[in-house]
């Protein structure tokens, strides 16, 4: 049986993410009032897991790290068809950079046990570093392919996948167990079904805190993060717009004239 672990992240809803500001005192982000949702690209990761499950004998585990409310996105993945869900949640995990996040997730994966394939979205909409997948692979000492956009051959010990690249792709051959980070082009994620939601009600999410995970406090969260936010600054723009007003016809006329005068069209 193919053991799949999908790593997902609860991110501030991208539609409201602009409301998030940095707290100058704590140097962390205030996420107040912005709901957390399943990271968009992680839906592509879930979709790949579900497609594999349809074609192979597979078992899907969902893993996330975040505040207790992140349990909702794990639940959402269970409703989509994952078999079991884990949430790593502890105040000590807070403020983690990509390195500490990848380390904590890797510890979670080690505790879950054997796996063949770990799938995650290539980036999160809030951090968008693309680091967590490959760093996790490095901690787990397994190979990684990032930005996977097509599965060419699957099912055996060696898989072939395509990964997107500037103006093209690379064809990769990879031996399982491995980590894939996936791009949006890979597939079109399915939407939740009513029956899925009903079935997911019976599925339990396992919560692990610092002690249950069995890691040292200084290796996780802010303490385990090599990088810190040192300062914040506002940016002064060198431009200020002249607002062109009038009727729509006037505005079009004036704008074209200004661009023509500036010799840029």
């Amino acid at each position: 049986m193919l053991k799949i672990i999908v790593c997902v992240k609860a991110v501030p809803d991208p539609k409201e993410a602009h409301k998030i500001k940095i707290d100058p005192a704590t140097k962390t982000l205030t996420r107040a009032d912005v709901p957390l949702v399943l990271n968009l690209l992680d839906k592509n990761a879930m979709e790949l897991a579900l497609l594999l499950k349809e074609q192979l004998d597979a078992h899907i585990t969902v893993l996330s790290m975040g505040p207790p409310v992140a349990g909702n996105i794990v639940k959402e993945c269970l409703a989509l068809g994952a078999n079991q869900g884990f949430l790593l949640s502890d105040r000590a995990f807070g403020g983690a950079d990509a390195y500490a996040t990848a380390y904590t997730l890797a510890k979670g994966i080690e505790k879950i046990g054997e796996f063949d394939l770990i799938i995650c979205g290539m980036a999160s909409s809030d951090g968008s570093t693309e680091w967590v997948g490959p760093e996790m692979a490095a901690f787990l000492k397994v190979p990684v392919v990032t930005r996977v956009n097509e599965i060419v051959e699957f099912g055996g010990e060696w898989w072939k996948v395509k990964a997107s690249l500037e103006n093209g792709y690379r064809l990769m051959q990879v031996k399982l167990p491995a980590v894939f980070t996936v791009s949006r082009e890979l597939n079109t994620p399915r939407t939740l079904s009513f029956s899925g939601i009903i079935k997911a009600r019976k599925k339990e999410i396992t919560l692990w805190d610092l002690n249950e995970l069995g890691v040292l406090e200084e290796t996780v969260g802010q303490k385990g993060s090599p990088t810190i936010v040192s300062s914040l600054a506002t940016v002064n723009s060198k431009r200020i717009a002249e607002i062109i007003s009038g009727t729509r016809e006037d505005k079009v006329e004036q704008l074209v004239q200004k661009l023509a005068d500036a010799a840029v069209i």
Binding site: A98, E135, A137, R147, A163, T227
Partner: peptide, 29 residues
């Protein structure tokens, strides 16, 4: 690049150090 974005975190994790993405300026403080 695609290569750099994969290679950098692999190297950083192995060296046990931090890594920052998409910098638009770098200065020495």
């Amino acid at each position: 690049t695609s290569m750099g974005t994969e290679l950098a975190p692999l190297v950083a994790a192995r060296l046990g150090t931090g890594l920052t993405a998409h910098c638009i300026d770098l200065i020495i403080d």
